[in-house]
Write a protein that binds this DNA or RNA. Structure first.
Length: 974
RNA sequence: GCGAGGGUGGCCGAGUCUGGACAAAGGCGGCGGACUUAAGAUCCGCUCCCGUAGGGGUCCGUGGGUUCGAAUCCCUCCCCUCGCACCA
């Protein structure tokens, strides 16, 4: 029978679906059956499924299948995340006929022209990629053979799900873990609307930058005008020697929140968006204020306003302060101003001397620079003009060094001696509280909306999840402490994330999802509506029968906290509570390692707050990223592989096996077509070997009576059979351990690749037609099929059923059989393979093709020495010392007489023994070497095409024989 | 800069926690052989250097150290990847 995965796999898919094989039900709670609840983040169908997703969902499937074989009730559900703007945005771009969007759908996911119309509503779009498209998630998941309970699927836009999220957010608000605050957002000034990253034409990488505004004061007539200097380095305020404006740009005098401010014209609109009232009073060119004096609020010093072409009136307030001691730009600019002092003095009515008198004011010391760091930086680089392109580099370098190593001077009082990185934010807070500083948001680069309008920072009212609440943080830490974090080194990352999290703005102005219950103009954003939905899975399919109106606060309070939590508990909720309690907590959540810093930590936070401790998550397994032929996958560039295509080409088992075996789940992996092809070949080879065994088994059982021997035929087993079966027991143990820890790669390496290697040796080593060999091979195949079933379910179920009449899924997980463990046999077999290598090496080095191989086995006193070494070794953890061994050996008169000879043998034996594991050492002196080599002589004779003779060294007069030492026979080739 | 993870043979990648079987698993690639009309598939062997007797030499980013013994432990330095947020 040929290996045809397409036929085999389709047959099993249909069988599983029609049997409802993976539909999970709670079992009677008599403690006899354990449960396992495994989840994976629900997919976001803003496009089709690619091969990276396939791995994400296959890893938990392996665990689900493994636990099922162990007898657990296993729940592995899935749903669909449609919250937020990505889908809405994609639909909009499609409606606008944007070619980039169309190309991406067609190239990456093979969407046919005719289907594009279906994608013109958000839920139509979502539905398409959930189940209709050739590249849809559901199709991909079914084809991969994921053991999902499909009855529980839902989307995050469903009415009932929204009621559940509503319950969550109302509860959090009541507990004051949800609070109102302000937050910067991207805002299109043309459409007058907030926008998301997907709506941008330019500046997708732009970040919000929080500028500090230093409120310099300009006394003008009787009025005090605030000149707000925008800076990212507020701690340099004491080093200001002057300020700059762009003389050619338009500036205004405006009333800002009832004060007079001097700002550039473009800053007016920005300030308005940042929730300030701004009325322009007067407009003029920047030149108008040159030569004025403004007073530093921190030092009380007044400094001059100079003109500078480098000032960008479009950035922040258009008024900047100059700190020549610490900014190479300012340093060079000041020198240029001073060189031009005469003209400036004349033009703006200043005293030339006061311009020339300006000196940089150092405010911090930093290693590797002089007292005026900017001067050092500029002079070392040999820069003498503000046009020098290297000015940027030295500026960046100096900013970095000052931030990390710069220590503030005495003038800073309480901050004196502090490193900037530690002092900056508290320094800023302090002066903000005193009314010296203000805040202004600006992007790091220009941002343009797809509509062509400029995007600015708007500072808006929003709701925050209080991840910074100390009580909540503490609970989250407790959830981390009791978590089974896989791999273990992620535990610290969760803890770090908790420490680092502040308030999280959890609503958006538009998008799909659940509305904020008390203000439906907002929608709860995707990372915030997906923190406890695993609880919803437990009862999702049951809620279908509950009228939506019944799903109120009390309903969910009853469901999750018990009937005593409310006055009038809903009967259905009480019934469903049992079901929920059966499945909860989540035993393992599998997710991408990039989600540690948000989703996974949120998941812990919300569970810790909303559920009792026994219902907190038990484990999280984190997964690595995928590469495609060494490069990052990218659906917009069409650099993707679709699971459907891969399955058509190689079969689902191959795709699974490759993904599971390419790396451990948490490591990054690389999809390489060539390697996948090899995997397919290996499965095919496995299939053919299995077929041979199955056929032999059939013809045997039809022609022979079943074995009636009381030991089940074990007496027919030879040493080499026992060796293979002993290996099988080790394999069972190792695979079980590996799967418990999600080490899918180790599991497949051990049971598949490493065992294939053992089988290769076995096949060479023995006559496979013996009944003992036949039954060994059959037993090995059956066990391996069960061990492989979680990884490659189609081919193993098929073969297991062919072999035993029962699918592998229905067969219990194998347990190691102690009667078959045989450490001594393993030690013996190592001697045979070492002997084989030695013969081969001698033959090759000497260039001989022997017709006779004589093997001389050490005897007599040498065995006594071995015994002494082994005794010492077992006393010292497997590491015998030469001195102690010699001492004990020399107590024996006969041995002492041999002196130097004994010494040599001891040294060599100690070396050999050290090379063995402690478990093996104790068996070494029990081995009957002659018997072992005799036993292997047929094999050796076949391999070397020579006569093989084993003789004790005492029974020959060949000089060579004296070279024999225990465990290392002497060899003569003739 | 801070935080996390890395640097192993032509390539990919185990090994590092818990030092000793490590010239270092496995795969890929390459070479040779068997089978075949041939190709493919499959099977076997070889694949750091030297060696006409099972041996020796060099090796795991760099440079030191600890140890009878270091890819593995400690220190120095160099390099790479990811994250430093409100995008899912």
């Amino acid at each position: 029978m040929d290996y045809d995965p397409q036929v085999i796999e389709e047959r099993w898919r249909e069988r599983w679906a029609s049997e409802g094989r993976y539909e999970a039900e709670p079992t009677a709670d008599d403690g006899a059956i354990e449960k396992t609840f495994v989840t994976v983040p629900y997919p976001y169908p803003s496009g089709g499924m690619h091969i990276g997703h396939a791995r994400t969902y296959t890893v938990p499937d392996v665990y689900a299948r493994y636990r099922r074989q162990r007898g657990d009730a296993v729940l592995f559900p899935i749903a669909w995340h449609v919250t937020g703007t990505p889908i809405v945005g994609a639909v909009e771009r499609l409606r606008n006929g944007e070619q980039r969007q169309i190309d991406s759908l067609q190239n990456a996911f093979g969407v046919p022209e005719a289907d594009l119309r279906e994608l013109e509503t958000p839920m139509g779009y979502a539905r398409y990629f959930i189940e209709e498209a050739a590249s849809s998630y559901k199709r991909g998941m079914r084809r991969l053979g994921l053991s999902i309970d499909w009855r529980r699927e839902f989307t995050t836009n469903d009415e009932r799900y929204s009621r559940f999220v509503t319950w969550q957010y109302e509860t959090l608000r009541e507990r004051r873990l949800l609070e109102k605050g302000k937050h910067p957002v991207k805002y299109c000034t043309r459409e007058e609307n907030p926008v998301t990253t997907h709506d941008l034409l330019e500046g997708e990488e732009a970040e919000f930058q929080e500028y500090t505004l230093i409120r310099f004061e300009w006394e003008r007539d009787d009025d005090v005008v605030i000149a707000p200097m925008a800076t990212l380095r507020p701690e340099t305020v004491r080093g200001v020697t002057n300020v700059y404006v762009d003389p050619a740009a338009e500036y205004v005098l405006a009333t800002v929140d009832r004060e007079s401010w001097l700002i550039s014209e473009p800053a007016v609109e920005k300030l308005r968006l940042q929730q300030r009232s701004v009325e322009v009073v007067e407009r003029f060119a920047g030149e108008r204020v040159v030569g004025e004096r403004v007073r530093n609020p921190v030092t009380d010093e007044a400094v001059l306003v100079f003109p500078a072409g480098f000032v960008d009136a479009d950035n922040a307030t258009g008024v900047v302060m100059s700190v020549p001691a610490h900014s190479p730009d300012d340093y060079v600019a000041l020198r240029e101003v001073q060189a031009d002092a005469e003209r400036l003095a004349r033009a703006y009515g200043l005293e030339e001397a006061s311009i020339r008198a300006i000196e940089p004011i150092p405010i911090l010391t930093v290693e590797g620079y002089g007292t005026v760091p900017a001067r050092t930086a500029v002079e070392d680089a040999g820069i003498d003009s503000s046009d020098d392109p290297r000015l940027d580099e030295v500026t960046t370098a100096l900013y970095r060094d000052e931030f990390n190593d710069g220590r503030l001077t005495e003038a800073y009082g309480p901050f004196a001696g502090d490193v900037v990185r530690d002092a900056r934010s508290s320094f800023r807070e302090r002066h903000r509280d005193r009314g010296h500083f203000d805040t202004f948001y600006e992007f790091t680069e220009e941002v343009i909306c797809r509509c062509g309008g400029a995007v600015a920072v708007a500072y808006q009212d929003t709701w925050f999840l209080r991840y910074d609440d100390p009580g909540w943080k503490e609970k989250a830490h407790r959830a981390v402490a009791r978590l089974d974090a896989i791999p273990e080194n992620t535990r610290e990352q969760y803890a770090d994330t908790i420490e680092w999290l502040n308030g999280w703005p959890c609503i958006r102005n538009y998008g799909l999802g659940t509305r904020l219950p008390w203000d439906p103009t907002f929608v709860i954003e995707p990372l915030s509506d997906s923190t406890i939905y695993m609880a919803y899975y437990a009862i999702a399919h049951r809620l279908e029968d509950v009228p939506v109106e019944e799903l109120d606060r009390e309903f969910f309070d009853t469901l999750f906290s018990g009937p005593e939590a409310v006055d009038d508990p809903n009967e259905t909720a009480i019934a469903l509570r049992e079901e929920w309690e059966f499945w909860y907590p989540v035993d393992v959540r599998c997710s991408g390692n990039d989600l540690i810093r948000n989703h996974l930590t949120f998941f812990l936070y919300h569970h810790a707050e909303l559920f009792e401790e026994p219902h907190w998550p038990r484990g999280i397994t984190v997964m690595g990223m995928g590469l495609l032929e060494g490069r990052r996958m990218s659906s917009s560039k069409g650099h993707v592989v679709l699971p459907g295509d891969a399955i058509d080409r190689y079969g689902a088992d191959t795709v699974r096996f490759f993904l599971l075996n390419a790396a451990e789940p948490w490591q990054d992996y690389d999809w390489q077509a060539e390697e996948v092809g090899t995997t397919r070949d290996q499965l095919e080879r496995f299939w053919h070997h299995a077929q041979t065994i199955i056929e032999a088994d059939r013809s045997r059982s039809s022609s022979e009576l079943p074995s009636t021997e009381p030991d089940g035929g074990r007496s027919q087993l030879e040493r080499i059979d026992r060796w293979l079966l002993a290996n099988l027991q080790d394999t069972i143990r190792e695979v079980t351990d590996a799967l418990e820890r999600f080490e899918t790669r180790t599991a497949s390496q051990v049971v598949f690749y490493r065992f294939e290697e053992r089988l290769r040796w076995y096949r060479r080593r023995t006559d496979l037609d013996r009944p003992g060999a036949q039954s060994t091979l059959r037993a090995v195949l059956e066990t391996r099929l069960r061990l492989l079933a979680p990884l490659i379910p189609f081919v193993t179920n098929e073969l297991h059923e062919q072999l035993t009449g029962l699918p592998a899924d229905d067969a219990p997980w194998p347990d190691p059989d102690h009667a078959l463990e045989a450490p001594q046999v393993s030690a013996e077999e190592r001697l045979v393979s070492a002997l084989y290598d030695d013969i081969a090496e001698v033959a090759s080095v000497t260039g001989t093709d022997p017709s006779t191989v004589r093997i001389y086995v050490a005897e007599g006193w040498k065995r006594q020495v071995l015994r002494a070494v082994v005794e010492q070794a077992s006393g010292t953890d497997g590491v015998p010392q030469v001195g102690t061994v010699m001492a004990s050996v020399m107590e024996n008169d006969a041995l002492r007489e041999r002196g130097e000879e004994v010494n040599t043998v001891v040294a060599r034996l100690i070396e050999t023994v050290r090379d063995r594991g402690a478990g093996e050492v104790e068996h070494l002196d029990e081995i009957d070497e002659l018997d072992v080599y005799d036993d292997a002589s047929a094999f050796l004779s076949r391999e070397f095409d020579a006569e093989v003779v084993c003789v004790p060294e005492t029974e020959t007069d060949d000089e060579k024989a004296t070279d024999a030492i225990p465990l290392r026979p002497a060899i003569r080739l003739e």
